[in-house]
Amino acid sequence: MQDSALRVLIVDQNLLRAAILEDGLREAGYRDLIVVRDMQNLLRRILDEEPDVILIDLENPNRDVLEQMFQVSRVVRKPVAMFVDRSDRGSIAAAIDAGVGAYVVDGLRKERVQAIVETTISRFTAFEKLRTELQETRQQLADRKTVDRAKGIIMKQRGVGEEEAYELLRKTAMASNLRISQVAQSVITAAELLK
């Protein structure tokens, strides 16, 4: 890879996402990667490392710290431009959609960083998907616990079997246009009230 020499600095407080991105860039052949987690003296760190490309997650308030670099070029040896080519709206918009900001050293040609930006976008999107899936799994697990507790209450109160208790929950949910977990929660709440 002709561009493995590019030095890429990743600013991300989310360790998992930073690792996923680092992996992706390594796979794409980039070797000179720096991950910054310590948010103190970020500007100093960047000036010392002299990266060619800086990637920062958009949840990070430190993004505004980077903005200063374009104003105080006297301090920075290599002035950093916001993006390779400001006319390239498509890929900038895609990066922002994915939740990442990319900053590139002035004078670096667009083709040289295109692959980095594309990898970053796809890894950020993959991470977001992972995060959503994790949330859904957690929700499902919590729902299942709620339904199990409600089933137990119904079995005890009505003296029915597990299947019948579940069927009762399911029918009630359908009839009242609610999710089973919502009905189950109502059963638990009611049982606690009547304790």
């Binding site: 958009l58 949840e59 990070n60 308030p61 430190n62 993004r63 505004d64 980077l66 903005e67 709206r89 900038i92 918009a93 922002i96 959609d97 900001g101």
Partner: peptide, 15 residues
């Protein structure tokens, strides 16, 4: 939002 840069860019891209 968490940064002024985000505000500016998300306004520009139409978020």
């Amino acid at each position: 939002e968490t940064s002024w840069a985000n505000i500016r860019d998300r306004l520009a891209v139409g978020h």
